[in-house]
Design a protein around this nucleic acid. Sequence first.
DNA 1: TCTAAATCTACACCCAACGTAAGGTTTAGA
DNA 2: TCTAAACCTTACGTTGGGTGTAGATTTAGA
Lengths: 129, 129
Amino acid sequence: MSSLMQIGELSERAGVSHRTIHYYERLGLLRPAEREGAGYRYYDDVALRRLEKIAALKRLGLNLDEIAAVLDLYFVDATGIRGKEKVIEILKAQLARADTQLHELTVFKRDLEDNIARMERLIAEARRG
Amino acid sequence: MSSLMQIGELSERAGVSHRTIHYYERLGLLRPAEREGAGYRYYDDVALRRLEKIAALKRLGLNLDEIAAVLDLYFVDATGIRGKEKVIEILKAQLARADTQLHELTVFKRDLEDNIARMERLIAEARRG
DNA sequence: TCTAAATCTACACCCAACGTAAGGTTTAGA
DNA sequence: TCTAAACCTTACGTTGGGTGTAGATTTAGA
């Protein structure tokens, strides 16, 4: 029994506001599994996973347009995707960016650790004398 | 002869508009080495390196406030920095975020590679038959 | 000395990604 | 049946990170 939920529950479980959900719907990122009668939106668990994926991709620095371009790869059968060459282009560009970002992030992390050590040493010295 | 440059040259070398430089100055991220007579700004090479650092930190997902909070660690003597405990707090928070981001980025990269391979396989199959 | 190019300040505007508020409708449960 | 909570649409507001433009001033170089 894959029970459906309303926008309030989805919003709570996903940790985003219902306005954000409306907004994503307008951008084509997400749509309710069902819209009965007078317009209430009803969502299944896939919607929740889509929202979580969107959040993860946002944390990686993709904007909502870029997310729209790849999101379906995680949720629909790839055989049906049109314009596969174009999708590959996008994916490869993102892969290159991810590589760069990984490298920069590694350096940044090392810098952070160095700086923390340095600050802690300075504080210890200040305390001693 | 550490010759100074005007905003136009700095902007060109750093790959940002002069308007952006003005904007960063207002936020306290950057200031000219010198402002002679009637107000023209003159910059040294440190300004260029600051701009490059800002760009790098932006690519990592820091906003300009966060960048302002750590930027000086790269350019001034740490002994003179006030509120070291607070700085450490910020640095540690960023370190935690960097760790998360590194992990997510690694997963994302693997997903991308999988998706690319899948798409290329599908295209090859389509060509064959 | 003179003029074209560079720069100055100040205000307005832009886009993404939402948030707030109003006013009306629907639904669940007592 | 009735009412409070949840939802709907529409429209305007906000924030971050800038960009555009105007009109005045300054500077570099012929």
